[in-house]
Design a binder for these strands. Structure first.
Lengths: 151, 151
DNA sequence: CACTTATTTTGAACAACTCATAATAAAGCG
DNA sequence: CGCTTTATTATGAGTTGTTCAAAATAAGTG
């Protein structure tokens, strides 16, 4: 959210022959400031800087930035899509089944451990791991835990 | 989709003090017959046996059966929810970014490899792995492949 | 067979997102 | 620096996938 970031983002946009607009920078800043934000949350955050910004614009900006690799989209179950600026590494996410909180999880083994499906008719490019669990807060609050499936 | 299955399902429902209804059996049969089916697909399939079945009923039946562990719900990006009767093992899914096809993938290493997030404030119960790639058909057809992210 | 209550149907509503079109403003040029 | 081109954004409406409340139906029980 610093002018550091802003300059970097502007450079990246430039490098891809895209225009550097207020709304793109505002959206990037909003996502940087609150990772795993939804489109609505991004709108709310970005509007403090850019009051006339609309939700539809947020949607197209998020979508565009995601396709040019400047944002990463996360799609947890029972939640609208979320976005983050942390890209370029393959980290995963843990979502609490109690409160929906999302946390980043570094790839446990250090190098994509799951990227080796035995035999398949597909050429695998990405392995996205979504951990589901119960965060300490919800555990303390005694949130009902679902039956754990087998390995 | 045999009477074998039907009897088993009826037994499972009974064991959970749930009523054995035509619509539940029809939905189970439909999902068994076409794994990874969407709610709409289930409706279409089940209606050949039970023409008056409605989409809303399919939704509640799918949801109920999922919560009592008789079905598993898959939520791939850019797709409505899908369901399968293969439960009780922890297998994952590979979705083709070209055509959307979904395939089952057995856990590569034989025992949940990713179930060890380093340090976390959450107690992990499930690790869902979603592979994304390009199936041979789409590869042959020369479907544009997205840039592959780093490990 | 009658009764109780889970289940299904009916009908409507909602959230998240996408689309077409018109208005706006970056970026390059003279 | 102002002008032009065209990407980008705003406007307004529409779609898809799903959920909800209430009335009708039908499993299972005695």
């Amino acid at each position: 959210m610093t002018s550091q970031d802003t300059a970097g983002w502007a450079g990246q946009l430039h490098a891809q022959d895209r225009r550097v607009t207020r709304q793109r920078l505002a959206v990037l800043a909003a996502v940087e400031q609150s990772p795993h934000a939804t489109a609505e949350a991004v709108l709310a955050a970005a509007r403090s800087e850019l009051p006339q910004l609309t939700l539809q614009s947020v949607y197209v900006v998020l979508s565009d930035l995601t396709t040019w690799g400047m944002l990463r989209r996360i799609e947890p179950p029972n939640s609208p899509a979320r976005y983050e600026t942390r890209i370029g590494d393959n980290h995963h996410h843990a979502v609490c089944t109690g409160c929906g909180r999302i946390e980043d999880v570094d790839c446990a083994v250090g190098h994509a451990p799951c990227l080796t499906p035995s035999s398949s008719t597909m050429t695998i490019r990405i392995a996205d791991v979504l951990y589901q669990g119960v965060c300490t807060d919800c555990a303390d609050a005694g949130v009902a835990s679902l039956p754990a499936p087998l390995p």
